[in-house]
Amino acid sequence: MSVKEMPQNWEPKILVFACNWCTYAGADLAGLSRLQYPPNIRILRVPCSGRVNPQFVIRAFQRGVDGVLVAGCHPGDCHYVSGNYFTRRRYLLMQRLLQYVGVDPERFQARWISGSEGPKFQQVVTQITEEIRAMGPNRKLRDAQ
């Protein structure tokens, strides 16, 4: 979408699935450290990145988010030992499938962010927000309402 067509005052909405033990703690640390990050993200806390069902991601796009980030502990650090290894397989595949049906790669991303990586959390969500802001609202997979 060209910048001209962009609705006035539009702000991207980005859904972040954050695992409770690492990424959510990382987001908390970013807050405590007073690191500024864009207010465009909505954090949805999940017990583990492995909890994120592919249907959650599609549903988020249906209901109008402009981008989705799935984030969890670094490989090897999952608090349920192996949840994020499954997440990695699942979303390596799903990312390619989403692109195959036309979703722009920027709109669906996954990252490992630990509890001590407040600055990384800030940097990742800022970067995603800016990428998506430049692309404009997502219209793909969206329901009509």
């Binding site: 592919p54 599609i58 249906q62 595949l93 989403l98 049906v101 997979l141 009509a144």
Partner: peptide, 15 residues
């Protein structure tokens, strides 16, 4: 039956 629900179906079935 609309584009969005049908695509939800298509992608979910494929996964």
């Amino acid at each position: 039956n609309n584009s969005s629900e049908n695509q939800f179906f298509a992608l979910t079935r494929a996964m």
